[in-house]
Design a protein around this nucleic acid. Sequence first.
DNA 1: CCGCTGTCCTGCCAGC
DNA 2: TGCTGGCAGGACAGCG
Length: 284
Amino acid sequence: MPELPEVETVMRGLRPSLEGRRFQKVIQRRDKLRFPLPENFAQRLTGRCVVKLARRAKYVLVHLDDGMVLFFHLGMSGRMTILPRVSGAEQRPVLDPHDHVIFETDEGEEIRYCDPRRFGMMDLVAEADLLQHKAFRDIGPEPLGNGFNGPILSERLKNKKNSIKAALLDQRVVAGIGNIYACEALYLSHISPERPAGSVQGSEADLLATTIKSVLTRAIEAGGSSLRDYVQATGELGYFQHSWAVYGREGEPCRQCGEGAEAPVITRVQQSGRSTFFCPGCQR
DNA sequence: CCGCTGTCCTGCCAGC
DNA sequence: TGCTGGCAGGACAGCG
């Protein structure tokens, strides 16, 4: 499911429960998710204190007090749930079969990582080696950081022969964009997803970079407000309803094309195996 | 090196 | 109702 804004929301939601807290108990219920979990995973986390949380691309980074970093990716179906401390005879909800890892903090809160499709991953790496890890080695700039703007995007797209849609999904070009925000950013920029990536240069790259920033920023804000401090009553993080401008709107009239009697219709095509939604009228 | 395809896994939903 | 096929927001290996 999650792209950059959802991962950011999950990270911010976990902060109050994890930063400065100690892992009292860690339960690992599976050998592997997408990849095998590290050796002695639970033991290595138990007793460790969390120094800070951060995000890089679609990964949440949990910096620990022994110089290691726990990091995880939610894949397509991963979710985190925070359950408050229980006292006496109170019981927590029974575990779901897809609750793969459970963290209990010294405050008595329980954080469950549930991932039905198991496309997610978790790993443990020394902080000094983090940037060399294969998950991060080749990742492009953070779109909301200073290292991303029109000229930089333009440079990274130059000479690329694949479609601009495929290029935006390529984490080496820019980090954190997934299928939905790629569609949304191209739509709002009036750029056809089928254009060769290398043809998006100059003022179009400026516009696209600006649009990417605003679309992601607004999604993070929407997540924060609709989740009320990023945690729902159920304790679940990262899921918020959002109405997209173009994603999922196949067959609907384009809202950007004005009030003409026959506005073009949003079209769905397959690009590198993924659905792309766009307006053939206003995206050129 | 580059770009594209298939694949991992389960859940859900439309259509028959 | 029950079955089936298609689709799902990601990322990687492997191929040409």
